[in-house]
């Protein structure tokens, strides 16, 4: 006779001895394990772990999309122009660039402070040009402008 069992609360299983040994060892390092688990949990819950795993697992797709996108004309132009800017910037003596940027900054500030109503006559313009700083700047600008001319004209 097997009467219906309505009491469904279950007794805990008896642990096997070897499991107890393992558990004891684990318990002695509980703080470290917990800290490690928390960090792991954060990495996982923040999605970083999934993201890294996904990138690695799908590297072929990712690479293909990046390459496809990069090889579009508009993006190729962007990359090449970005590289030209890199070449340009890397060829300039940093001291010259530093002075140039410093002066440019000061000039902008000074220009802002000049009253817009002040007129500039021919004589005043001539005296500004004759100032050594201005003359040097104009020399550089003219050099740059001549550099922009078509190759054949340069010859």
């Amino acid at each position: 006779m097997s009467k219906m069992i309505e009491n469904l609360s279950l007794e805990k299983e008896e642990r096997m001895p070897d499991l107890d040994i393992v558990m004891k060892d684990v318990m002695s390092r509980m703080d470290d394990i917990m800290a490690f688990m928390e960090t792991l949990s954060l990495i996982r819950s923040s999605g970083i772990m999934d993201l890294l795993r996904a990138i690695l697992e799908n590297r072929e797709d990712v690479t293909r999309i990046v390459v496809d996108e990069a090889s579009k004309k508009v993006n190729m132009n962007f990359i090449r122009n970005a590289l030209s800017i890199y070449t340009f910037l890397s060829s300039i003596d940093p001291d010259v660039m530093r002075n140039f940027m410093k002066n440019a900054g000061e000039s902008l500030t000074s220009a802002k402070m000049t009253k817009q109503t002040d007129g500039i006559g021919i004589m005043k313009l001539y005296s500004i040009i004759k100032q050594p700083g201005t003359f040097e700047a104009m020399r550089i600008m003219l050099k740059i402008l001549s550099g922009l001319a078509p190759e054949e004209k340069k010859k």
Partner: peptide
């Protein structure tokens, strides 16, 4: 392109 990459990455998820 970025969303295409993200979409592909979802294959792992």
């Amino acid at each position: 392109a970025i969303s295409n990459i993200e979409s592909k990455l979802r294959k792992s998820r």
